[in-house]
Design a protein around this nucleic acid. Structure first.
Length: 291
DNA sequence: CTTACGGCCTGTACGC
DNA sequence: TGCGTACAGGCCGTAA
């Protein structure tokens, strides 16, 4: 799935069942994701409290007590679904009624996390490009996964000046440079295509030849695209869904992505959307308005 | 150093 | 219907 807006939407869905909650049970159904689970992964999580749930690039991070952080990445096809458990009052005490037995029983359900919300969270990933790790909070930024990531595109540090600086001297096309998480953290193929269209920049333009005016337009286009996508709950194409199973809506607003042959949506433009392949990935753009 | 490419997995859509 | 091929939102290791 998931680029920044999708991961952010999932994060918001998980906050009520994770933040300031305790992990009561963790079950691993299979252990062969892109990165193997650390030893005793499940046992180490049980009983821990989640202090906050935040996002860096496309990573979801649950900061736990005792100085450790649970790192989650959804890869291409990962999903996190929340199944609320009921709380019944019986004999003056609250008794938990577990989620139905079929929850977490799918062939690609890898991890089941129960919390005292009470709720069951299931991590599903049929392509197994996702990962879950437990890392020390203090040295998180130095870990190879995070060391060298670019700035967050929705933070104050993301400015036209920053963009100009990180694109300087790069000989690769702007499309490829924006997909590189060291340039900017969190963009993927969809939102790069959409932002370049909004900024009127050709995906084939050399990154080093994105001038001042263009980098200003691009900065604004990236911010507006991401903000609107988050507001729409992300884009649901194949695997992506919210934690409650609802679908995102932003796919209905794509100007270029997956619209090969469609007329360019810009008023007054007679051109059509073209698809090309750049470093092995599909790029969609309007050759008439993107220069 | 930078950049390009293949591979990791499985599922789905499409053409014959 | 069945089969083969291409492709999919990410990332990493290797090679040039």
């Amino acid at each position: 799935m998931p680029e920044l807006p999708e991961v952010e939407t999932v994060r918001r869905g998980l906050v009520p069942v994770l933040e300031h909650r305790r992990l009561t049970r963790v079950t691993l159904r299979r252990g062969d994701l892109r990165v193997a689970f650390p030893p005793h992964f499940a046992e180490r999580l049980v009983g821990r409290e989640v202090k906050r749930l935040f996002r860096r690039a496309k990573y979801l991070l649950a900061e736990l007590d005792e100085g450790e952080t649970l790192v989650m990445h959804l890869g291409m096809s990962g999903r996190l679904s929340v199944h609320a458990q009921e709380r019944h009052r019986r004999l003056g005490r609250y008794t938990r009624v577990p989620a139905p037995a079929e929850v977490g029983r799918g062939p690609h359900d890898h991890v089941i996390i129960e919390t005292d919300a009470p709720a069951t969270i299931v991590f599903t990933d049929h392509r197994r490009f996702g990962l879950m790790l437990l890392l020390e909070t203090a040295t998180l930024e130095q870990h190879p996964l995070f060391d060298g990531l670019g700035v967050e595109p929705l933070s104050k540090r993301f400015t036209a000046a920053y963009l100009g600086k990180v694109l300087e001297g790069r000989r690769t096309p702007i499309k490829s440079a924006l997909l590189d998480q060291r340039t900017l953290a969190g963009l993927g193929n969809i939102y790069v295509c959409e932002a370049l269209f909004r900024a009127g920049i050709s995906p084939k333009r050399s990154a080093s030849k994105v001038d001042r005016a263009r980098s200003l337009r691009l900065t604004r286009a990236i911010r507006s695209t991401l903000r609107q996508a988050i507001k729409a709950g992300g884009s649901s194409l194949r695997d992506y869904a919210h934690t409650d199973g609802a679908l995102g809506e932003f796919q209905h607003r794509f100007a270029v992505y997956d619209r090969e042959g469609a007329p360019c949506p810009r008023a007054g433009c007679e051109g059509g959307i073209k698809r090309i392949v750049q470093s092995g990935r599909s790029t969609f753009f309007c050759p008439a308005c993107q220069r």
